[in-house]
Design a binder for these strands. Structure first.
Lengths: 347, 347
DNA sequence: AAGAATTTTTGGATCGTTCCAAAATAAATT
DNA sequence: AATTTATTTTGGAACGATCCAAAAATTCTT
C-alpha cells in the first residue's frame, strides 16, 4: 500500500522525534520519557510498523538473532514430534523462534540444513542427530562458538552439551518389574544393534537379569526395526523358540504395540499371562488396549529441558559443555497383567 | 578464533580483489572470470566464510529472506507432523528454511508466532490454523503482501490460498463401500461439530446414505473429541442404542482406533461383521491389527503440495489466491472384513 | 597500432537498525 | 541568576551484504 515498508525513520518523522528515540522505545529503554514513549507507540501502531529483526541483528555485534535451530532425525515419529513441541514451548515463551528441519536420518541433508541455519545466524542449535552423525559433522558449528545441545542421541567426541535419558536404568526397572511378577523367561526385542541407545537399553536389561540371578540367553535378544512392523516380526520369531519367553522388554513403544499385535494374531492376549513393557511412553500408550506398561521418557519434558539448557548457554555467552541425563520411570498399566502365572482376572 | 566473523571484505583482501567481485561470486554471476571465481572460492573455504543472509536480505529490495513460516495447530498429532515433514521436504530442496511453530490450538499464541515470524521477514506462510481462527487474524499479514496458504483447514473470508482435502468425497466413498458390503446401519462417529471439516465429512456421509436410499438417523451421528479416547467413548454410546450400527464411518483414524478398542472391550472384533473405516490414513493405519480401511489423505503429499503452491506464489511475486482441494481415496484393508453378514473367514 | 567492442572489476551509496559521544532540556542546588 | 546535576534527545558512524554507474583490462577490428 504505502510504498515500501514502514521504518523507524517513518515513525520518527510522524512522531516528531529522532530515529534514535524510536530505537530506544523499541528496546524498552528506561532512558526515554514516558510521554514520548506513549506517543511513539501510538504512531507505530497507526502506521503498522513491523520490526526488522534482521537489520537489528546485523548491527548488534554481541546480540543474537533470537533464532534457534532444531534439527530432528525423524519428525514422523511421535516421540521426536513431542520433543520438538517441548523445545518450541520454551523457545517461544523466551521470545525466540525455531527453525525446524527434518533430516530423515540423512547425514548429508543434516549438514545442509545446519549450514543453512548458520547462514541465517541462529543463536544456538538443538539436534537429535541422524544415526551416522560423527563429531566431525558438528565441529564447524561448535568451533564457531555457537552453543549446541544434542538430545536423545549423543555424538561421542563432539564438544557440545548433551541430554540423554537414562536408558539403562529404564530397562533395568522393566526387568525388575517383570521378575517381581514372577516372569523368568524375559526377552529383549526390537531396535537396531548399532546404535548407542540400543546398547544402553540392552545393558540395563542384562543387568536386570543378572541382579535377579537369571542366566542370560542369547536367543532372547531379538533385534528388528524400531517400528510396529518390527515388533510383529520380532515376536513371531520369539514365539517359535523351543522355550518361548513369557514376557518382553521392548526397545520402544512402537515395537511393543507390534508385539501386542503379533501376540493377538497367535491367540495370546497381552496382559493375560504374557507381559509386555515398552519404552518412551508415547501418547498412545495410555489409550491403547491393553494400556501399555512402559518406561516413561516424556519427550516433551526432554525438549523443554534441552531448550532451557541451550538458552542458558546462549545467555551466558560462554558455552560450557554439560552432559545431562534425564531420569526415567516405570509406568505400570495393563500390559503386564496381574502377574505370572496368570492370577484371577476381575470382571 | 580470528577476531569477529569473516566477511566479504576479509575474503576480498585475502584474494586480492574487491568486495564487489566477491559478492558477484557469491551470487554465481556469469560476469566474473573463471580464474578469479576459483581463487575466491578457495579463499572462502580457507577462511571458513559463512554467508550472512541477514545482511543480504536487508539490502535487496526485491529479494526474499528464503525463510518460510509454518504454523501448525497440533504437531503432537501425527497427521500434522507429516504435513510439516512434507512442507519441509520441498522447502529444503528449494533452498529455503522453515520456521516451525506449534500453536496447540491457541489463537493468541498463533498471533504471536505469526508476528514474530514477520519480524524475521518470512517470504511466505503456510498455516494449519487453530480452531478459532478468523479472517481478521490473517488480515495483517496478507495485506502486507506476504503469500499465505492455509492447509487442512481453511479460513473463510481470508484473502489467501487454501488447500483442503476433499472431505465430503471421502466419507461418501466410505459409505458406498460399506453399503456395497451389505451394511445398512452405518454410524458417523467422532469429531467436533463446530468445525468445517466435521461439517464436510458429515455432508459426504449424508450424501452417501441418500444415494443408497438409506434413511438418515439422528442417533447415528455421535460427536466426540477427535482422539482415540473420543472413539472409545463414542462407540460405547453407539452400542447402547436399541438398534446399534453394524459399521461406523469415523471422523479420523485416531477415532477409528478408539472405536476398535471399544469394540474389543465389548467382545466384538472389528473386521468380523462390524465394519470400521477411518479418515486420514496415518502411518499406523497400515500396521494396525486389523489393518484399518480408511480414506487416504496423505498429509505428507499435502504438505508438499502446499509448499509448492506457496513457492510458486513467492516466485511469481504476486499472490493470486487459489483454492485447491486435494483428491482423496479409499484404501481398503481389513477393518471392514469380508462383508456383512460375516462371510467365511479364511485361516 | 589505434580505436571500437567486449569482458571484468571496482568504489561508493544504500538497506533498517543500534551504538556512541555529545547536545539539548529540565530539575535541583547554591 | 548562575551553576551543578540529572534527565532526554539526537545526529552521524557502524554492521555485512548488494546494487549501480563507471573505470580498467582484455579482445577484436580494421
Amino acid at each position: 500500500m504505502t510504498k515500501g515498508r514502514v521504518t523507524v525513520i517513518d515513525i520518527a518523522k510522524a512522531a516528531g522525534v529522532s530515529k534514535s528515540t524510536v530505537s530506544l522505545v523499541l528496546q524498552g529503554s528506561p532512558l526515554v520519557n514516558e510521554a514520548t514513549r506513549a506517543k511513539v507507540n501510538v504512531v507505530m501502531r497507526e502506521l503498522g510498523y513491523v520490526y526488522n529483526r534482521g537489520a537489528a541483528t546485523l548491527r548488534q555485534t554481541t546480540a543474537k538473532s533470537r533464532i534457534i535451530g532444531m534439527v530432528v532425525n525423524d519428525l514422523t515419529n511421535g516421540f521426536f514430534a513431542e520433543l520438538a513441541v517441548g523445545v518450541d514451548m520454551v523457545v517461544q515463551s523466551a521470545g525466540f523462534v525455531q527453525f525446524l528441519a527434518n533430516t530423515a536420518e540423512n547425514v548429508d541433508r543434516q549438514q545442509e540444513v545446519i549450514a543453512s541455519m548458520r547462514e541465517h545466524g541462529i543463536s544456538g542449535l538443538i539436534i537429535s542427530p541422524a544415526r551416522a552423525t560423527t563429531a566431525l559433522d558438528l565441529k564447524a558449528i561448535t568451533e564457531a562458538g555457537i552453543p549446541v545441545v544434542t538430545a536423545v542421541r549423543n555424538v561421542p567426541g563432539a564438544k557440545c552439551s548433551s541430554l540423554v535419558s537414562d536408558n539403562a536404568a529404564g530397562t533395568l526397572q522393566a526387568v525388575s518389574h517383570l521378575v517381581s511378577l514372577g516372569h523368568r523367561r524375559i526377552a529383549f526385542v526390537g531396535g537396531y544393534p548399532d546404535t548407542m541407545v540400543f546398547e544402553e537399553r540392552l545393558r540395563g536389561y542384562m543387568e536386570g537379569l543378572k541382579s535377579a540371578g537369571i542366566a542370560r540367553q542369547e536367543a532372547y535378544v531379538i533385534a528388528s526395526s524400531a517400528s510396529r512392523a518390527g515388533g510383529v516380526e520380532a515376536i513371531s520369531k520369539a514365539l517359535k523358540l523351543s522355550e518361548p519367553p513369557t514376557a518382553t522388554v521392548c526397545f520402544n513403544d512402537a515395537v511393543a504395540f507390534g508385539v501386542c499385535d503379533g501376540l493377538r494374531s497367535q491367540g495370546i492376549e497381552p496382559g493375560r499371562g504374557f507381559g509386555v513393557v515398552g519404552f518412551d511412553d508415547v501418547i498412545e500408550a495410555k489409550a491403547a488396549v491393553p494400556a501399555l506398561t512402559t518406561i516413561s521418557v516424556d519427550p516433551q519434558a526432554m525438549g523443554r529441558k534441552a531448550a532451557q539448557l541451550l538458552l542458558r548457554q546462549i545467555n551466558a555467552g560462554k558455552a560450557e559443555a554439560e552432559a545431562v541425563t534425564t531420569a526415567v520411570r516405570l509406568v505400570v498399566r495393563e500390559s503386564c497383567g496381574q502377574g505370572f502365572p496368570a492370577r484371577a482376572e476381575t470382571a
